[in-house]
Computed example of a mutant assay.
Amino acid sequence: MADLQEYKCPCCGGAIQFDSALQKMKCPYCDTEFEMETLKEYDAELKNDTEDDMQWETAAGSKWSEGETDGLRTYICESCGGEIIGDETMAATMCPYCDNPVVVMKQFSGMLRPDCVIPFQLDKTAAKEAFKRHLLKKRLLPKVFKEEAHIDEIKGIYVPFWLFDTDVQANIRYRATRVRSYSDARYIYTETSYFSVLRGGRIGFDRVPVDGSTKMADDLMESLEPYDFRGAVDFQTAYLAGYLADKYDVDAQQSSGRANERIKHSTERAFANTVTGYATAVPESSNIHLSNGRSSYALYPVWLLHTTWNGQMYTFAMNGQTGKFVGNLPVDKKAATRWFFGLAGICSAVAYGGAWLLWLLGIL
């Protein structure tokens, strides 16, 4: 089997790629469009490909040290012959010489096949515009950052996700309080009553996502949620053409711990919302039991953007389906100080005005 798979245009021979706007494969050279169904036979034909046996021997160079090449992979672009270097999790990329999209078919051998994929709905231009909008109306953002900020790198990548379905039976006990105040001619009294509040019931979870790549920060990926799973389709490698893609390096079993954390937190929050009418409600014990647990493997679309300012790199991400944009920004310390003291002044004025009003009413 060939290491790299390119989808060639039968009209002009150029490399075709998935167009997020058309939801079809399109040749960027002759503008020919192809329905996704017509490319399904490609995946079946890949099994019949044979691998070239072209070994060369050379005395040039020196041997790598032990462990120095761990995780390093090299491939040859079938369009221009250029060498593509990547790591062991790279599953789709662009040739750095001819810019043709390629899918690293060998990376899928021995790995689970994705059950589904949410195709990109938004292109690179939309990601750039979202970055500009992200900088607007940020009062504490340094002005020079707005003026000088430029995108060092932007890439569309399919991120591997494990999706967890489960039913939850939960029993949670809360220690709750109610507070009542009253007074007489001499004292103000506060009475606190304590209650033991029990909550039990069932709740279901569908497709709780956990990213399966150690390259992606969990908090960054979770900030891009939610994805609309109604846009998911059966997986075809053709969807990867024109984008980067990682295969998972954290399997479903290893990801289940993060899924359990999210499910437990969401369950406790949902049950806590039913404990009303109390001043405080603190959980004392929690028993959560999972049943009918299932997991599936999906690829979700993400645009990653990087910019460097004052020697520090800032990473931003955009949901390639919905356009939700997240990322941290630098803070103008002088503007933040002015804002803090201005807010403090307003609070002081409000407090003074409130005390003056109470004095007029004879309460103080």
Rank of each mutant, 00 (worst) to 15 (best):
T190C: 10
S62K: 04
T190Q: 14
I76F: 06
T237I: 11
Y174P: 02
D228P: 02
G311S: 02
L136K: 12
A259G: 09
S255L: 04
G61P: 10
G82V: 11
G14S: 12
D246M: 09
T89W: 08
G201Q: 00
Y182I: 06
P142L: 07
L39W: 09
W64F: 15
K143G: 12
H306S: 15
V302G: 01
I84E: 03
G81D: 03
K155I: 14
D87T: 02
Y243K: 01
E78L: 08
G277T: 06
Y189M: 05
W162S: 05
K264H: 06
Q23C: 07
F34K: 02
V233E: 12
S79M: 14
A59L: 04
F195S: 05
N171L: 14
W64S: 13
T32D: 02
M90H: 06
T38M: 12
G327H: 09
Y297L: 07
W162L: 05
M221E: 00
L122P: 01
T74Y: 11
P226L: 02
S296L: 00
A241G: 04
L244H: 11
M36Y: 04
A59W: 05
K146H: 12
G82L: 10
T177N: 04
Y352D: 07
N287A: 15
R230V: 11
V350G: 06
Y314T: 00
E222D: 11
R113E: 03
L361V: 13
E57P: 08
I288D: 10
N273M: 13
I263Q: 00
P301Y: 04
T89L: 07
Q55P: 07
I346P: 04
Q321F: 05
E83G: 10
V104T: 02
N48P: 04
R202C: 13
F325D: 00
M1D: 06
M318T: 06
D52H: 12
F340S: 08
F316W: 00
R199H: 06
D43L: 13
T89Y: 09
K334Q: 11
D43N: 13
D167T: 09
Q254E: 11
A241M: 07
Y174M: 05
